[in-house]
């Protein structure tokens, strides 16, 4: 009897320790990023760092405003392209799709979510970049290209979340609208979709998170010039690209500035998580 209780206790501690590992991981990530990144911000000056318009590591000028704007522009473009298509496709899957094509369609979208970002980037490089170059001029490595590719990359995220929230709307809502004489479309877009609003919003926010954190695909197609973004057809460098491009050879303050870029990115993601939590709370109330 006694040996049993020891076994119980040991296993209890093992399970608890495993749970603690997750918390430790977050704490470690925060500590290491902040400890390595924040001093650099102090040395450069927080305002010079966040609002500086030039990034010239050779002359010890580290302003990441071009990269912050780059990330925001590219993400906004991806949202403009991805959200309408994503929501419409989710509506199609939840409300229009015949049963026969549902399974292969769902499988295809799951697969889209699983395709590695390098493969997306490569696809963008060989298809979208030449297309933009031939149609709109410029080098093709541009904000527009990045927006289009990222718009497609966030589709599966948005479709998945929106579809499940559309399906969670009680069937009676739809039927009642039909019974009142509304068309199929009117019932969906005036009754079902507004009811599923919070789910749709969650999908959009998750999409934003995915777009802003995307690294490899953006590097391969966005041009990566570290200057203020000047137009849709000009190249751009995002926060993520900044880190990967220069981390390989950076040293001293340059290296710390790159880690500080990571801290900024991390803060962006934390803000997005806060938004998600707020949406969740809104639903519960």
């Amino acid at each position: 009897m006694k040996s049993k209780s020891i076994k119980e206790k040991v296993m209890h501690i093992v399970f608890l320790a495993a749970a603690m590992v997750c918390i430790m991981a977050v704490v470690l990530i925060c500590v290491f990023l902040l400890a390595n990144g924040v001093p650099a911000m102090g040395k450069i000056g927080v305002f010079n760092f966040l609002l500086g318009k030039t990034w010239r590591p050779g002359q010890d000028i580290y302003g990441i405003l071009p990269m912050i704007l780059g990330s925001i522009y590219v993400t906004a473009g991806a949202i403009i392209i991805g959200v309408p298509i994503g929501i419409m496709t989710a509506v199609f899957m939840a409300r229009y799709c015949p049963k026969k094509i549902y399974a292969p369609l769902k499988g295809a979208i799951d697969l889209l979510a699983g395709i590695p970002s390098v493969v997306y980037g490569f696809f963008g490089l060989v298809i979208i970049v030449p297309f933009v170059r031939d149609t709109f001029g410029g080098s093709g490595n541009s904000i527009l290209t990045a927006c289009v590719l990222l718009g497609f990359m966030i589709l599966p995220t948005i479709i998945g979340v929106c579809e499940s929230s559309l399906r969670a709307v009680p069937e009676e809502y739809y039927q009642n609208a039909l019974a009142l004489g509304a068309t199929h479309e009117r019932s969906i877009f005036k009754v079902v979709l507004p009811t599923a609003k919070s789910g749709v919003l969650t999908g959009v926010v998750l999409g934003i998170g995915r777009a802003i954190g995307e690294t490899m695909a953006v590097i391969m197609i966005a041009g990566n010039q570290a200057r203020m973004p000047k137009g849709l057809l000009k190249g751009v460098r995002t926060l993520t690209a900044n880190i990967v491009m220069e981390m390989g050879y950076a040293a001293d303050l340059h290296r710390e500035a790159l880690i500080a870029t990571g801290v900024v990115l991390f803060v962006f993601i934390l803000l997005i998580n806060l938004c998600l939590a707020a949406i969740k709370k809104g639903v519960e109330q």
Binding site: A25, I212, G213, I259, G262, L276
Partner: peptide
């Protein structure tokens, strides 16, 4: 707390994991 951390962890972009991995 665990819910919060696992949500945070799943939102972090892979490049930030890369930075952390490099530092740690």
């Amino acid at each position: 707390l665990m819910d919060l951390t696992s949500e945070t962890l799943s939102g972090i972009p892979s490049i930030v994991y890369g930075l952390f991995g490099m530092l740690f």
